[in-house]
Amino acid sequence: MSYAIIGFGEIGQTLARAFARKGIAVSVATTRDPESFASEAAAIGPGITPTTLAEAAKADIIFLAVRFQSHPDVAKALPSWQGKIIVDVTNAYGVPDENLGGQPSATVVARAFSGARVVKGFNHLAAAVLDQSPAVHGGRRVVFLASDDDDAATQIGALAENLGFAPIKLGGLSEGGLLVQAHGNSWGWLIFKDLVKFD
């Protein structure tokens, strides 16, 4: 299984550090030349490989960590995303509801990535919290996942556990996705909820 993170800003780098902590290799890409952020990638760890957007799009599981408004540009990297899982880490805060057509933001993302199985996740915590060790007081920090594809959600849940987090599935995008989405000037009920699961 190959992994990529598209977007290497605050959240993208935070996700890369989560992979590096567990020694899991991941490619990182932006719309820029990989050499322009190679030093930042190298500083995170040896398994963090800067690459082009076209190369990152070849991964099996892709974390979309760009501004919500940029997702259509990323989606143009491939004519079809069939067989891939896209983890939608975007937040549409400040995006007017009418721009979403009354749909959860993750549904809008899913439409753009034709053929992909989209899982909303890793977007409800601020970067500074997500960047901390997920091992908290003998428990594990929770990440919420929502998807219309249960198998994709299960796969991302397994990855979340490998990264040290406790995944909690919220159901489909139109139910669970609403709990962890930002839109207009409001945040879903579970955004910023920093929960810990004790096994």
Rank of each mutant, 00 (worst) to 15 (best):
G9P: 05
D73Q: 15
F198I: 12
S114I: 14
H183M: 12
G176A: 12
A158M: 10
N185P: 11
T154C: 04
I6Q: 00
G9T: 04
T49W: 01
R141E: 14
V119F: 01
G7Q: 08
A158S: 13
S133N: 14
L53H: 01
K84D: 01
N91R: 09
P104F: 00
A166C: 10
Q181L: 08
I6K: 00
S174E: 15
E40G: 05
R111F: 09
Y3I: 02
F122A: 09
A25D: 13
F122K: 07
E55D: 14
G101W: 04
E161A: 14
G83L: 03
S174Q: 14
A25Y: 01
F37A: 03
G177V: 05
T51N: 06
P134M: 10
G139R: 06
D88V: 02
G94D: 13
G121H: 07
L53G: 02
P134I: 11
L163F: 03
I24R: 08
P167E: 09
L190G: 10
D199N: 14
L130K: 08
Q13K: 15
D149R: 00
G102K: 11
V109S: 10
S80N: 12
T90Y: 04
E55G: 00
R32K: 08
A25V: 04
Q181F: 06
I5K: 12
S36E: 12
Q155P: 00
G184M: 06
E35A: 15
S39C: 03
P50D: 02
I86H: 02
T30D: 07
D199Q: 12
P167N: 11
V142C: 04
Y3G: 03
I44R: 13
V26P: 03
D199I: 08
V180K: 03
R117F: 03
D97G: 14
A38E: 09
R141D: 13
L15G: 06
G102S: 09
A42P: 05
V89W: 01
A160L: 10
A43C: 06
F192P: 00
L195P: 07
W81D: 04
L163Y: 03
V26A: 13
F37H: 06
F198G: 09
A59K: 01
F37P: 01
F68K: 04
L130T: 02
L163T: 10
A116I: 11
P104G: 05
G139V: 09
G115A: 01
I86L: 08
Q132K: 15
A42V: 01
A20N: 08
